[in-house]
Simulated assay, not measured.
Amino acid sequence: MILKRAFVGLALLTTLLSGAASAQAQEISCNSTYTTERGDSLSDIAKRAYDNPRAYQNLFDVNPGVLTSPNVVPIGADLFIPCLNDTKQPPSGDLPEIRAANSRDIEFLTGTNYAPYVGENLPNGGFSTELIHRAMQFGGQPANYLVDVSRDWGTHLQPLLENGKYDIGYPWFKPDCSNTANLGRASTWRCENLLWSRPLHEIVVTFYGRAGEVENISTASDASGMTLCRPDGYFTHDLEAAGLVAPTITREAPATPEDCFEMLAAKEADLVSVNIDTADRIIQSLGMEERTAEVIDLSTIQTLHAVGMRTNPQSRIILRRLDKGLKAIQESGQFREVAAKHL
């Protein structure tokens, strides 16, 4: 009898505690983020969000990188709760705050004035920055990190990343490190000293000249003797691979892509080479549509990445997390949504 009374009493206490816990449970609504707690299951969360425990598959489908199995819900994970009539849409606008989980901050470094990829006045900091945020969110458990912006691209890799001031820099173009024979000193240094994430983007890098003057250029040798403008701090490995280096051409390297196009208009440069998205924006803003011509035959496809130093053990861990998150958002369709917003 004593045992029975104890059991009944325990059952009553459990019922009371369960009711109290339910009363204090987080409210769950669609198109929001829910932080998981001890004892949560996807079916329970679906029951609270949709009044339908069988809707757990919707939660699993839109939270890749956070959930690895419908049967395992990590404690403290931030789950996006979609609306049932729009289950494939990830959160738009500002991302949920990433809560501290590590004793050491992860420090990212990026630049500005490189639309649509990074820029202080761009939505969510630009295409690359939004991808970094989402990859960090979906690549593992919550982590405390910050993103700093420096306008001086030329100092990002050396000395700031090299000296350990920052863990990861982005976005940077990756040379063909399988063939360094034609690479210059800076590109060779990148191959020898940097670790690379999986690509953030593939980008068309092309060349522009004054209309009526460059239409007959079809090979790099046709540009011999010309002055080529590409901003300071930008990659040069494609120019090196094509032989577009001194003494074949003269290189000008002002601070910004806008400076290059202004030099083109002023006949201080014969060619400008930047990515096509940046070029289109600047040409339109300067009203140069009728005065410029693209040299399509010199175009190449390049990839942008996050990078870290080989000598920084933290970098390798962070890049693995980013790779996992990037893979997840590409497979879930979020990459297309982010791209549509910025491009």
Rank of each mutant, 00 (worst) to 15 (best):
R320G: 10
K327P: 00
R310D: 08
R321Q: 07
G308W: 10
Q330E: 15
I318K: 05
Q334C: 08
A328K: 06
E331H: 07
G333A: 06
A328Y: 07
R316N: 11
R316M: 15
E337F: 07
L319Q: 01
G325I: 13
N312A: 09
R336G: 05
A328E: 04
Q314G: 02
L326V: 08
S332N: 13
E331T: 13
G308Y: 08
A328Q: 08
D323T: 08
L326I: 06
N312S: 11
I329M: 10
L326G: 01
R316S: 15
F335L: 10
E337K: 07
I318P: 01
P313W: 15
T311K: 14
I317A: 12
S332D: 12
T311W: 11
L319H: 02
I329H: 02
M309G: 06
S315I: 02
L319A: 03
D323S: 04
R321M: 04
S332V: 06
Q334D: 15
Q330V: 11
I329G: 00
S315N: 09
G325E: 12
R310S: 04
Q314H: 06
R321Y: 05
I318C: 02
L326A: 05
M309I: 10
E331Y: 07
P313A: 06
R321H: 07
I318A: 05
K327W: 00
G333M: 08
I329Y: 04
M309S: 14
P313M: 13
P313S: 12
D323Y: 00
L326N: 00
L319K: 01
R316E: 15
K327I: 01
Q330W: 05
Q330H: 12
L322C: 01
Q330S: 10
R310L: 08
R320D: 11
R336C: 01
G325L: 08
Q314T: 13
K327D: 05
T311R: 15
L326C: 01
L319V: 04
T311C: 04
F335K: 09
R316Q: 15
V338N: 03
E331I: 04
Q314V: 12
N312C: 03
R316G: 08
F335Q: 07
M309Q: 14
L326S: 06
R320P: 00
Q334L: 07
T311N: 14
G325D: 09
L326M: 12
N312E: 07
R316P: 00
G333H: 05
R321N: 04
S332M: 03
N312K: 11
E337I: 09
E331V: 06
P313T: 14
E337G: 01
N312H: 14
Q334S: 12
L322F: 03
D323V: 10
A328N: 09
E337C: 03
R336Y: 12
M309Y: 07
K324S: 11
N312W: 09
T311G: 01
Q314K: 14
L322V: 02
Q334I: 07
V338E: 03
E337W: 03
D323G: 05
M309T: 10
L326E: 01
K327N: 03
K324D: 09
R321K: 13
A328H: 10
I329F: 09
R320Q: 11
Q334H: 11
K327T: 12
R316T: 15
I318S: 00
Q334G: 02
L319S: 04
L322D: 02
S332A: 14
G308C: 10
R321V: 02
K327G: 01
R310F: 03
Q314F: 05
A328M: 14
D323N: 14
S315Q: 12
N312D: 14
L322H: 01
